[in-house]
Structures are given as structure tokens and as C-alpha cells.
Computed example of a mutant assay.
Amino acid sequence: LEFCALVSSKICHDIISPVGAIANGLEIMEEEADESMREHAMALVKKSASTASAKLQFARLAFGAAGSAGAEIDLNEAEKVLRPIVETGKHTLVWNGPSATMAKDKVKLLLNLATIALDTLPRGGTIAVSITGEGDRVAFEVRCTGEKARIPGEFEELLNGESDRPLDAHSIQPFFTIRLAEAVGMPLSVSAEEGGVTLRAMTA
């Protein structure tokens, strides 16, 4: 139950800002007589609604059931929901994957791994997602390049079993990602090179 509560808390945290902006924009439109201000408020509402929708669609695939047990998900759909999450201004997504379907839990792993990559690039950069292999023998590589790239400390501690801090809404995603990788038989590894960090998940 605590795990479910933390995942719910994370999702709420992710969408509360755009939903709040929608409410603010509607309030301005209701009270403001100046046409230019009303147009600005409408633009804010449209942008925030798009952001909230993107975050909810991502959460549905990355955390939700997204179909029946044993279902597969189109990788093109995975790219579609991931791109607006990554490309918000500072980051660019490069997607190198086949047009195919994949077991939903492996797609969940890929999506969560790609968003953890955002924390490796605090000043922005390029996140290159590569999917190789097929069937039960697949591998994911997420290469993160940019200024001040570094391995997120909390993720590294959890991956190495060195964290003794209680889980919270921030650490629940790396925790979930690591457990998901174990469940689908694709252990994670992370390495830092000059100018970048690489996250990998490979079939054991």
C-alpha cells in the first residue's frame, strides 16, 4: 500500500503544476476584460492542458496497467508518449528503435529508464535511446550527453543496494525501475564517461 501511495504521489506531483496553471488561466479569462490578457490566458490554458495530457499519457504506460496481462505495446506509441516528457526545452530525444511491439513491462522499463536519464543532465543535453535485439533477447541503452552529466546519486545508491533512506515520491521512480528490471530479467547497469552517462538494461 505504501508503494502504491508513493507512485500516486509522484503522478500527482507531476501533473499538479499544469493543472494549477489551467485553473489560473481560466480565472484570468473570467475576470479580465482586456482582450490581449484573455488571449494570453487562453494560450496558457492550451499549453498547460497539452502538458497535463502528455504527463497522464506517459503515466498510463510507464506506471499503469495499459492493457491486459501479457499485453504488448507498440514501440512507436512508447516514443510518442516519451518525446513530450523529454523535450521540454533543455533536452533532446534521439530514438533508435524498430517499428515493433514489445511486452508491456519491458516498455515500462524503457520509459522509466529514459526519464531517469533526465536527472543525469541537469543543464540539458541529448538523450539517445537505442533498442537492439528481438523477442526475449533485447537490450536497451540510454546514452546521455551534455554539460555536467553525472550519475544521479540516489539511483546509484539504490542500484548498488547502498541506500538506507526511506522511499519518497522522488526516489520511488528509480526504485520502481530497478525492481521492474529484475522482474523482466534485464539487470541494469550505469557508467560515466567523459561528457556523458550511459544507462543499460540487458537480458540476463
Rank of each mutant, 00 (worst) to 15 (best):
E157C: 02
F140A: 03
L159A: 02
G125W: 05
A149L: 01
I172G: 11
T126S: 09
V129L: 06
C144F: 08
E157V: 00
T145D: 13
I172N: 11
A169W: 14
S163G: 03
E134M: 11
G161L: 06
I172W: 08
D168V: 09
E154G: 09
E134N: 14
L180G: 04
R137G: 04
P166K: 08
A128Q: 12
I131L: 12
F155M: 13
I172M: 12
I178M: 10
A169K: 14
I131Q: 07
P174A: 08
E157L: 12
E162S: 11
N160C: 08
L158Y: 00
A139H: 04
T145R: 10
A139Y: 04
E141G: 13
V129M: 06
E141T: 14
E156K: 15
I131E: 07
A149K: 02
I178E: 08
I131H: 12
T126M: 09
S163Y: 04
G153W: 06
G124P: 04
P166Q: 07
C144Y: 08
S130P: 01
S163E: 07
T126L: 05
L158G: 01
E134Y: 11
L159N: 04
L180V: 06
C144V: 04
E154K: 05
G146C: 02
G161Y: 06
A149Y: 02
G133Q: 04
R150E: 13
L167F: 07
S130I: 01
I178L: 12
G124I: 06
E141F: 08
A128D: 15
G133I: 04
R179S: 13
F140S: 02
F155T: 09
G124M: 05
P152A: 10
E141A: 15
T177H: 00
E141N: 11
L158M: 11
P174F: 05
R137S: 13
I151K: 10
V129Q: 03
T177E: 00
F176L: 14
E134A: 15
S171T: 15
D136N: 14
I178K: 07
C144L: 06
K148P: 00
I151L: 08
A169E: 15
E147G: 00
N160G: 02
S163Q: 07
R137C: 07
R123W: 03
V129N: 03
E141D: 14
E147H: 00
R150L: 10
T126I: 14
I127H: 02
P174Y: 09
I151T: 10
T132V: 13
G133V: 05
R123E: 14
A128C: 07
V142W: 07
T126C: 06
L167E: 13
A149G: 02
G124K: 03
D136G: 14
I151E: 06
T177N: 01
R179I: 01
C144M: 10
E147F: 00
L167N: 10
E134K: 15
S163K: 05
